[in-house]
Design a protein around this nucleic acid. Structure first.
Lengths: 194, 194
DNA sequence: AGGCGCATGTAAGCCGTTACATGATTCC
DNA sequence: GGAATCATGTAACGGCTTACATGCGCCT
């Protein structure tokens, strides 16, 4: 019944209580590496979670002028989150724009293709570096060895990100090899150094 | 102006003309590995593409009782597709349910976590096998070496899938190691061999 | 005086899914 | 006779994005 976004928010709040505004920022980094949401989606979802008794709020006066609401998970919320984590979710269909594009790469000149792959490689490499930095920070925390601590989960998800992006960079390098200009030349009838 | 789905359909039709029904099936395998759509989305999109002059159809009487429409890309459609492929798309935000879930894995018992990771590993391994089979078939086609042929694009995207899933399986194995039951035991005050 | 950050919400619209609707042919 | 496959569409609804709306305090 609770949506995926709801579980994402519960996951954030289970680590640390926050206002809707805070959540919107945290939905960038670090959770945003694999799930994102705008504030326009977060505020109504918080109301729904509260109606279901999964979170509760207290009014605080924060830095802003207006009263803010700091949300925290209830016991019921934690239980719901844990159930969802352990549940049998069927694999989601993949939606990858980069691969979809590559699948039609035969429609463009090899030179344009190389350009494309080089740009993709750069983006993956940048992401890889960002993950590596965060992973180093996460690993420094001694609690990141304990499977019942949030830092553990952060560490293993980041490790996944690193491995994933590393594979992507290697794949791009491999593709550049496959696209190397051996025979870009227009098809000439029997050339070759016979 | 043309949507992502529109480009996905153009990519399919550029390889081979097809009916809406065909497209719906092909949106499973092989394109469906990285982009999917239901027929209810495909039929209206075909109408839109035709209105924009990117595809055209001829009536045929196929196996079914009703007249079918076989669609093919126009020259304008091919050009539009090529432009999109070479264009500078900004990286899409990742949305990964499996990782989102893992990020909250500290809320469950290590044993449940191991179970979860084992199931994920199995799914990745199954996908990996499927990719490897298709890659072997694709590589057998001699045109898969020519960057201007569809088979080339199929081969390199499949190679990406294989590398990606291989990394995922290895990551799962690594996580199982991290979750190994060294110290699952409930926290007893000063136990340990001195 | 103007812009940025804090802070919370609503509204319009697109994209995608599930379900509804129809109907002939072929296989069991 | 009934189920599966071929074949095309529409309708209702949910999730997500973009844009609209408001307003105080701080920094330049």
């Amino acid at each position: 019944m609770t949506s995926t976004l709801g579980h994402a928010i519960l996951g954030l709040l289970a680590r640390k209580p926050a206002t809707g505004y805070d959540l919107a920022r945290r939905m960038d980094r670090p959770v945003g590496w694999f799930w994102t949401a705008r504030h326009s989606q977060i505020y109504p979802e918080l109301a729904r979670l509260e109606a279901d008794g999964l979170v509760e709020h207290e009014e605080i006066d924060g830095a802003g002028p207006r009263q803010s609401k700091r949300y925290a998970v209830t016991a019921h919320g934690t239980a719901t989150l844990a159930d969802w984590v352990a549940s049998d979710l069927e694999p989601q269909p993949v939606r990858d724009l980069e691969v979809l594009r590559l699948w039609s790469v035969w429609t463009v000149e090899p030179e344009a293709a190389r350009d494309l792959v080089r740009r993709a490689r750069d983006q993956h490499a940048a992401r890889l570096t960002a993950y590596e930095v965060e992973l180093a920070e996460a690993s420094a925390d001694p609690t990141s060895r304990d499977p019942r601590r949030p830092a553990f989960a952060s560490r293993i998800t980041l490790e996944g990100g690193v491995r994933n992006r590393r594979a992507a960079v290697e794949w791009c390098d491999w593709m550049l090899g496959e696209l190397a200009d051996r025979a870009d030349a227009p098809p000439e009838a029997e050339s070759g150094p016979a």
